[in-house]
Design a protein around this nucleic acid. Structure first.
Lengths: 220, 220
DNA sequence: TCTATATTCAAATAGTCGCTTGATTACTTT
DNA sequence: AAAGTAATCAAGCGACTATTTGAATATAGA
């Protein structure tokens, strides 16, 4: 019985690592690509020391890895099995927790023109030049990994770069995933300027998980 | 940001529910089928009140459901998404935690003659009568759900029922899953009696997850 | 109605966790 | 070497968690 309960204690280590909101926020950010501690702390709204401690917990549970380059420590998701685990956790929360369903509805409202896009079909249309696919995340995340054929226009710079977007062509914007508001905000702005614009619910991780092509940064 | 961090807090509810070894042990038992509090407590080696409280936590996180019949409360896994989540958790632990890999090796040693059985092929051989497929879990779990074609012979009663097992036919025993020792123990006993016996690493949940046929108890 | 029993609840204690603050480490730049 | 800075460490405090113990609740059967 001891061997067996040891095993459950080990599983529980992972449970404890994802038993905190801030840690899940950090993990979700890391799913977009490697980042330094300071940038994670800022984006997640945590103090530096607090973020560092949360990252330490994630690292001890082996969900993330860190390597130091000069004075910066860069964290990254350890393994693709972390991604599938995160997806399973999110999926479970979506199917089981009424509170999440409610929040999800609020996001859908924010998303405005929501799509039920066939992803394979979207890819074909992007390749055929019928659709502009817009990655509206910060440029760093685009660099780390983006959907094949996507153009990087961070939301904060969208207005400046409207000239690069032909009005005749439909625009599909994506961001970090189903609970990210960057793409919906971009769509709202684009629609106000007369574009036919839609938000894609998925992010790079979901796209990759379906075996669709993703362009990843080569080893630096 | 508030909506987003609310969401992470909700995800973390599930994390907290699986942040305890005893709770994971209970959840794993429930994956074998519905059970009462007392039977869960006994099997998991917990006091009654403690088990009851852990089950309450699991229920509040919506991972399990309970219904009362007479004086007994029967708990069950809420949904198949709980199963996939549990599998993802176990998979992550296996790929990332050296400690789990070490424990897993210890289990493989205990398993003795371990197999790399093609499950589809096994099913065909069982159907053709070439193999006796033995479910060595307690009868209650067999009743809740078992692999199609399996015969129920709980480990504790194996010696009594050896007469029912033709020695000419190969025996494949299975139990709760890869970290359960019932099937390996059965195999050891059978081999000592001159049977050709092997343990199947998977349990009913894994079998079902692959879309292979499982006989489940009809609603009572 | 009275007794027996499955389960839950309540209270208490010891231990763990999360966040903040201020120091410390380690590396780069000058 | 000295200054500057990214990140970690250490300590402290309040909040939460796990387990045990004993009481309370609710249902079945006599």
């Amino acid at each position: 019985m001891s061997l067996e309960s040891d095993l459950y204690e080990q599983f529980a280590r992972i449970g404890r690592a994802v038993a905190s909101g801030p840690r899940l926020a950090l993990l979700d950010l890391l799913r977009q690509g490697p980042r330094t501690v300071e940038s994670l702390a800022k984006e997640a709204g945590l103090t530096l020391a607090n973020a560092s401690q949360h990252l330490k917990v994630l690292r001890q549970a082996r969900l993330v890895e860190a390597d130091k380059r000069g004075v910066f420590v860069t964290y990254r998701v350890a393994d693709s099995s972390v991604d599938s685990f995160y997806s399973a956790l999110r999926g479970l929360a979506e199917t089981r927790l009424a509170e999440v369903q409610q929040i999800a509805r609020a996001f859908v409202e924010k998303r405005g023109s929501f799509e039920a896009v066939d992803k394979q079909r979207l890819l074909e249309r992007v390749r055929a030049g019928e659709v502009t696919l817009l990655d509206v995340r910060p440029a760093q995340e685009y660099r780390a990994a983006h959907i094949e054929g996507a153009m990087s226009v961070p939301l904060s710079e969208l207005e400046k770069h409207l000239g690069r977007l032909p009005k005749a062509r439909e625009v599909v914007a994506y961001c970090r995933g189903p609970y990210c508001v960057l793409a919906p905000q971009a769509v709202t702005l684009l629609q106000a300027r007369g574009y036919r614009a839609f938000a894609l619910g998925d992010g790079v991780a979901e796209w990759r998980a379906r075996g669709l092509p993703v362009v990843a940064e080569s080893a630096p």
